[in-house]
Design a protein around this nucleic acid. Structure first.
Length: 102
DNA sequence: AGCGTGACAATTA
DNA sequence: ATAATTGCCACGC
């Protein structure tokens, strides 16, 4: 593997349920570009198409959009409707010190 | 240790 | 709403 981060990212991507999406920033708030790097490098069967940009736009394009539509992900034009398709932050995800739940 | 690059993100105009 | 800037972090040379 390229690094422990890569594995953690792949695991998070694999955890995205069908019909839902998550943003690069959600997976790695401090290094969203690393997510794309990993998804591009890996040959695993991860659902890479379920990872979209913070504004709902797609990074890959055609194939990604087709796959998302096939899963029932709400899409408006060329952007995913994050308000409906964005997976809520699972409990226990990189919660930064200071963002304590209370 | 510096430089350039990137499946990004938030701001500003 | 879009376009251009700036900031960010990690990777490879």
């Amino acid at each position: 593997m390229d690094g422990a981060r890569a594995e953690r990212i792949l695991a998070a991507v694999r955890a995205i349920p069908e019909g839902w999406v998550r943003t690069y920033g959600d997976l790695e708030p401090r290094a969203p570009r690393l997510v794309g790097r990993v998804l591009r490098e890996t040959d695993e069967d991860v659902p890479w198409h379920r990872v979209v940009r913070a504004d709902g736009s797609l990074a890959v394009g055609g194939e990604q959009r087709a796959r998302l539509r096939a899963e029932g992900v709400p899409i408006r034009g060329d952007r995913v409707v994050l308000a409906q398709a964005r997976l809520p932050l699972p409990p226990g995800e990189h919660l930064e010190p200071g963002e304590a739940p209370g």
